[in-house]
């Protein structure tokens, strides 16, 4: 089997060019999916029989929450690849993931709080999902703080990779312990969306938004990755050619 395509992915100049070429292929479909999803979710979908129009924040909240976890997994996977095979580009991918993931987590928390106000009557409820989302934000902040604290890039890469992997082991433990903790404090009566009974007109825009957010993440990641590679390789000669071109 020919592995050249894979080995080329470890070369910064190749990845830089590839990221530039791939960006529009993710950015445009992302924009289309998000516009279609928002149109479907905010205009076409019928109001919920219990929550009225308030439920529509779901179309931003659920994809953000989904992305916050997915970005963490991508970040940890990239960090592990970088740590195991000593691939610098993989570390650059992990470093680019962190701020995006933290932003999605923040968006999920804010939209969750805004949704909570009309539904629960309070902006913040110590609901297990909101609490684990908050802990996830702290995990992102810790990762970024560790990266910023170590001046040497290679050491920062490897140390933060260890942290990301430790975090992945801990995320499920934290999630289940928080769920367990909450179920002791209060009956899970807060608010239950009738889970499977979501009509297609509501579900379809949600799926579109999920797809759109995922594509949006990849497009953002590619842009950030180019910046990261430029910063890391600023001493290399190929940078001068790229910049002067």
């Amino acid at each position: 089997m020919n592995w050249t395509w894979f080995h080329r992915l470890a070369s910064p100049p190749y990845v830089y060019g590839l990221a530039a070429r791939l960006t529009p292929w993710f950015a445009w479909p992302a924009a289309l999916c998000i516009i279609a999803g928002l149109w479907g979710g905010l205009v076409l979908a019928p109001p919920d029989y219990q929550q009225g129009d308030g439920f529509r924040i779901l179309y931003v909240h659920a994809p953000s929450a989904w992305m916050s976890l997915m970005v963490y997994m991508s970040m940890a996977t990239a960090a592990a690849v970088g740590l195991i095979w000593r691939i610098k580009v993989a570390h650059a991918v992990a470093a680019s993931c962190a701020p995006i993931g933290a932003s999605f987590t923040f968006a999920a928390l804010v939209t969750g709080a805004l949704w909570g106000e009309p539904m629960w009557g309070t902006y913040w409820e110590w609901d297990p999902r909101l609490t684990s989302e908050l802990v996830l934000l702290f995990l992102y902040l810790g990762y970024m703080g560790l990266r910023a604290g170590i001046e040497d890039t290679q050491r920062a890469d490897r140390a933060s990779a260890v942290l990301a992997i430790v975090g992945v082991v801990n995320v499920p433990i934290i999630h289940y312990s928080v769920t367990w903790w909450n179920s002791l404090h209060q009956a899970p009566s807060v608010m239950r969306l009738a889970k499977p009974a979501m009509p297609l007109a509501m579900l379809l825009p949600l799926l579109l938004m999920l797809l759109g957010f995922t594509l949006f993440f990849v497009a953002l990641l590619l842009v950030r990755l180019r910046g990261e590679v430029l910063a890391r390789e600023r001493a290399a000669s190929w940078i001068r050619e790229v910049v002067s071109a």
Partner: peptide, 27 residues
């Protein structure tokens, strides 16, 4: 171990350690 060699690492150490310690606190 991760914050070795970082100056004024106290706050960072808490930020790294506390989220991972939550299950211990809960149980």
């Amino acid at each position: 171990a991760l914050t070795l060699g970082i100056k004024r690492s106290g706050a960072l150490l808490s930020l790294l350690t506390l989220p991972l310690s939550l299950p211990v606190l809960i149980f």
